[in-house]
Design a protein around this nucleic acid. Sequence first.
DNA 1: TCTTGGCATGTTATTTCATATCCTGTCTTG
DNA 2: CAAGACAGGATATGAAATAACATGCCAAGA
Lengths: 165, 165
Amino acid sequence: MSAGNAPPVGFEKHDHSACVAQALAAAEARCAAEGLRLTPVRRKVLELLLQKHRALGAYAILDLLRDAGFGSQPPVAYRALDFLAEHGFVHKIERLNAFVACSHPGETHSPAFMICRLCDAVAETQSTPAKGALGAAARAAGFHIEKTVVEAEGICPACAEKPKA
Amino acid sequence: MSAGNAPPVGFEKHDHSACVAQALAAAEARCAAEGLRLTPVRRKVLELLLQKHRALGAYAILDLLRDAGFGSQPPVAYRALDFLAEHGFVHKIERLNAFVACSHPGETHSPAFMICRLCDAVAETQSTPAKGALGAAARAAGFHIEKTVVEAEGICPACAEKPKA
DNA sequence: TCTTGGCATGTTATTTCATATCCTGTCTTG
DNA sequence: CAAGACAGGATATGAAATAACATGCCAAGA
């Protein structure tokens, strides 16, 4: 990570403890409804990502897991992250090799991300990549799209205002 | 890499030795025109990526460099790749942590990729991600996009035809 | 109850990807 | 020629991801 104490939020402010609790409750509800097992490690990883509200590398998560009394070897974190990502509770940011909690729980998922080059803040939005030029190219080539990664790198509003902070 | 001898091509067939030579010549011309230094290592890396015509990891490139008599330590490959990527001769596939030679030399570059989940074949096309929902979201959020990564994962035509190969 | 099977987790080790740092040679340019 | 810039070699290390194997838990069925 290029910044140790970057702005913790998508880009806009919001009440945090409330949104963490709410998101965790929603995740629990969905897991119960779908027969998924939100085990202690998985729940903890999701909670950590929700609390930090920024992209965390697997090894950063691992440190936090250790602090919380869980196992601290790579597979512990990766397995939890695989589960959470598979079911859309978190997303992987390929550009950063890092993970963020999903900001749009429940919605149809074709996420796109805006990543600040200076502070690593990440904001999630929706995209429809298969609708445009990419979708046309895929159809023309006979390629069947299953999933898309859309990540925009640039400068977030906060960093744009303090160019030399 | 999940396949050792996957189809070597974007998806469609074409004459290969010709396109390699042509691309190399074009790269040399452009470097000469812009005062860039296409040194032996850099040229070799580009040539290798053009020949293989598929995504190669840095360490695979490194092995090939060693075979060709160049240095074989990681920085050798990464420095060459950084140079080539910076000037648009190759692209990094974030999803694979690998690199491919550019298929559209010279054109305005906002590439998008289709990556086969089964054979790792990669095809390049153009995208205009900032035109659609993503661009709108960025403007609304005050985010300034500098570069975008668009990578679609799915099944290529060849693999679709032989489901159980 | 026992036990069997599935699943999650823990542990160790290794592979793969990427970068930092230092040094040397070469080329250019004043 | 001296000074500076840049490319590249060498060593080391950091960081991400997975392989392989062992253990613990819990629920279904004999």
